[in-house]
């Protein structure tokens, strides 16, 4: 069997702040098979964006290792890494150079490689713009002259112009309107199918993750507390945090009212990690041992949950 597209092995990452060390990613391991889509969900501050940056090689782990197609990301040459794995970020307003024309933005990764001729660059840029649904005329515009959805298409074209195998999408549709979000999600799905891409797809929107991901990892305060195939996890969540997240999704069904999620007001604080299970201060079903002993991983097919009660 070939190596997984992404392999994360016992990765740790902390940051120093004024108030001490903050644990962003705490002993996380997982793998994504080639052609798969792993959705990562969790609240702000749970470490999901740090995870994305570690996989992209933009941050180095304190310990542990990230491998992409069998190679360690840390030892990889920047240009080689760029040919293999590319990001699409949340905010197309701040991730595009406001002074560069769309064509030049999309051409940048090719130019940076230093091995492509001008004709080849022009051909590939035109091909990619057409592929993401932008006209040649759009290529001559500045980012400020585009709508949010068009800007995100530019960001996707730039990510794909080097023909990478893996794309890390960090909240790619969170800044967009629903009708535009649907367009971009459809485009990402189509590109994955046609080009055989692997996605790490980070979102706080569970409905979006359910739509795009084949597997889901739920993060809480730096750890993956539950993982499984999308269908199983959404149909039969085992971790109380996953259950609460799913219960707080407001589906467009009138008459149901707003659910009581039952998480209380104790918000997670990564600088002040609770002992035992890190979710116990908010957990509606916590028992005495949850406050003192870390829960084991209860395995099931494709994953499992870290909970004493699962």
């Amino acid at each position: 069997m070939s190596a997984p597209a992404i392999e994360v092995l016992q990765v740790h990452k902390t940051f120093a702040t004024g108030g001490g060390r903050v644990v962003a990613v705490d002993d996380v391991s997982f793998a994504i098979p080639a052609g798969g889509v792993l959705g990562v969900v969790g609240e702000s501050g749970c470490g999901k964006s740090t995870m994305a940056r570690l996989i992209l090689g933009l941050l180095a782990p304190d310990s542990g290792e990230v491998k992409v197609e069998g190679q360690a990301v840390s030892g990889m040459d920047r240009k080689a890494r760029a040919r293999l794995i590319q990001p699409v970020f949340q905010d197309p307003f701040s991730s595009l150079n406001p002074l560069a024309r769309v064509k030049d933005i999309v051409a940048m990764p090719l130019v940076a490689q230093g091995t492509f001729g001008r004709a080849e660059i022009g051909r590939r840029v035109d091909e990619l713009l057409a592929r993401v649904g932008l006209s040649a005329e759009m290529g001559r515009r500045l980012p400020a002259e585009l709508s949010g959805g068009q800007r995100q298409r530019v960001a996707i074209a730039r990510a794909l112009v080097l023909r990478p195998r893996i794309v890390v999408c960090d909240e790619p549709t969170s800044a967009l309107d629903v009708s535009v979000q649907a367009q971009i999600l459809n485009l990402l799905a189509e590109l994955r199918r046609d080009l055989g891409l692997t996605y790490l797809f980070i979102s706080h929107n569970l409905a979006v993750v359910e739509h795009v991901a084949s597997e889901v990892a739920v993060m809480y305060l730096g750890r993956i507390v539950e993982r499984g195939s999308t269908d199983a996890l959404f149909a039969r969540p085992e971790h109380p945090y996953t259950k609460a997240l799913l219960a707080s999704v407001l589906t467009p069904e009138p008459g149901l009212g707003v659910p009581d999620v039952g998480l209380g007001d104790a918000l997670p604080d990564p600088a002040n990690m609770p002992p035992g299970c890190r979710f116990h201060p908010r957990c509606p079903v916590a028992e005495a041992r949850c406050a003192s002993e870390s829960p084991p991983l209860r395995k099931r097919a494709n994953g499992g949950a870290e909970c004493w009660l699962a």
Binding site: E43, L245, S248, L250, L263, D265, L267
Partner: peptide, 10 residues
């Protein structure tokens, strides 16, 4: 976050 959103709407 969705969890906080539900609390505020309630």
């Amino acid at each position: 976050d969705v969890t906080v959103q539900a609390q505020i709407l309630r």
